[in-house]
Computed example of a mutant assay.
Amino acid sequence: MASGKSEEISAPKSRVILQQCLSAKLMVEPKSDASEAKYTQIGRGLVVYICFLKDASEDILDKMVKSILSACLSEDDNGKLVSVLDLPGDVLIIPQATMGGNLKGKKMQYHRNVNKETGLNLYTKFIQMCEDVMMKSDKCKERQTVVRYGTYGNRQVFSMDTNGPYSHVLEF
């Protein structure tokens, strides 16, 4: 039975896609006349695509980090689903502003995304918080897991090996 109060549904402030991986590789700096392309990579673990939407602020980051790193999405050696912290596994964070897009006619529009400066600040803080949580995990320290990340605001070449298309969308 309704309580008489109308429950206000707020628009999401971020969108995340999580995908377990066996390995992943991300170009973080394209080839130039002076140098070869630069890549970052991880082994077994979790790929996190992240997009911050309008009205996003630091107050959502703690919940995001805890939820993402504790979600039981990775298969251990026995096929049991465990968190990336319990695996323990690596994490690759990829900024993905296109996840904030909206199809209007035949074209994508990105009016729902946070502005670039705020997005970069949130992305940087999110990475730091993930690194802090991973460093505090005894299992992650023992295995020397890593948090790697892409370059905010750049197009990046990405490849991944996975044991199944196992993607999950979360909104915060």
Score class of each variant (00 low, 15 high):
residue 12 P to D: 07
residue 152 Y to L: 02
residue 1 M to P: 07
residue 136 K to F: 01
residue 143 R to A: 15
residue 172 F to D: 10
residue 170 L to H: 09
residue 133 V to F: 09
residue 80 K to I: 01
residue 24 A to Y: 03
residue 62 D to N: 14
residue 118 T to V: 14
residue 130 C to A: 05
residue 72 C to V: 01
residue 110 Y to M: 04
residue 33 D to K: 15
residue 166 Y to D: 14
residue 64 M to Y: 06
residue 43 G to S: 14
residue 4 G to W: 10
residue 35 S to Y: 05
residue 99 M to F: 15
residue 132 D to G: 06
residue 52 F to M: 08
residue 147 V to S: 00
residue 48 V to N: 12
residue 80 K to A: 10
residue 2 A to R: 13
residue 138 D to V: 09
residue 24 A to I: 03
residue 17 I to M: 14
residue 159 S to D: 13
residue 48 V to P: 11
residue 34 A to G: 03
residue 144 Q to D: 11
residue 3 S to A: 13
residue 130 C to R: 00
residue 22 L to Y: 08
residue 126 F to Y: 09
residue 102 N to M: 09
residue 88 P to H: 03
residue 77 D to P: 00
residue 5 K to Y: 13
residue 102 N to P: 00
residue 99 M to A: 07
residue 74 S to P: 00
residue 92 L to E: 05
residue 5 K to T: 15
residue 64 M to E: 14
residue 64 M to I: 10
residue 111 H to K: 14
residue 3 S to K: 14
residue 139 K to W: 01
residue 84 V to K: 02
residue 57 S to D: 15
residue 61 L to C: 02
residue 165 P to M: 05
residue 126 F to D: 02
residue 108 M to D: 07
residue 142 E to V: 02
residue 96 Q to H: 13
residue 85 L to H: 03
residue 44 R to T: 12
residue 28 V to E: 04
residue 60 I to L: 12
residue 19 Q to P: 13
residue 56 A to L: 06
residue 145 T to E: 02
residue 85 L to Y: 01
residue 148 R to T: 08
residue 131 E to F: 00
residue 151 T to Q: 13
residue 42 I to N: 02
residue 49 Y to P: 00
residue 164 G to R: 11
residue 102 N to L: 05
residue 157 V to H: 11
residue 143 R to W: 00
residue 141 K to E: 05
residue 169 V to K: 12
residue 79 G to M: 05
residue 129 M to Q: 10
residue 128 Q to R: 08
residue 93 I to A: 07
residue 20 Q to L: 01
residue 2 A to I: 13
residue 46 L to K: 01
residue 116 K to F: 06
residue 148 R to D: 09
residue 76 D to M: 04
residue 101 G to W: 04
residue 108 M to N: 11
residue 85 L to T: 03
residue 112 R to S: 12
residue 172 F to R: 06
residue 148 R to M: 12
residue 142 E to N: 11
residue 97 A to Q: 09
residue 98 T to C: 12
residue 147 V to E: 02
residue 87 L to Q: 09
residue 128 Q to E: 15
residue 139 K to L: 15
residue 72 C to D: 14
residue 91 V to G: 12
residue 171 E to V: 08
residue 78 N to S: 15
residue 138 D to M: 05
residue 48 V to W: 08
residue 134 M to I: 07
residue 165 P to R: 03
residue 99 M to Y: 10
residue 17 I to N: 09
residue 35 S to D: 13
residue 124 T to P: 01
residue 95 P to S: 04
residue 171 E to M: 11
residue 69 L to A: 03
residue 124 T to C: 06
residue 69 L to T: 04
residue 159 S to G: 13
residue 72 C to F: 02
residue 137 S to C: 13
residue 61 L to W: 00
residue 151 T to N: 10
residue 88 P to Y: 02
residue 89 G to W: 14
residue 51 C to P: 11
residue 139 K to M: 08
residue 132 D to C: 01
residue 159 S to M: 15
residue 112 R to F: 09
residue 60 I to P: 04
residue 90 D to P: 10
residue 23 S to M: 08
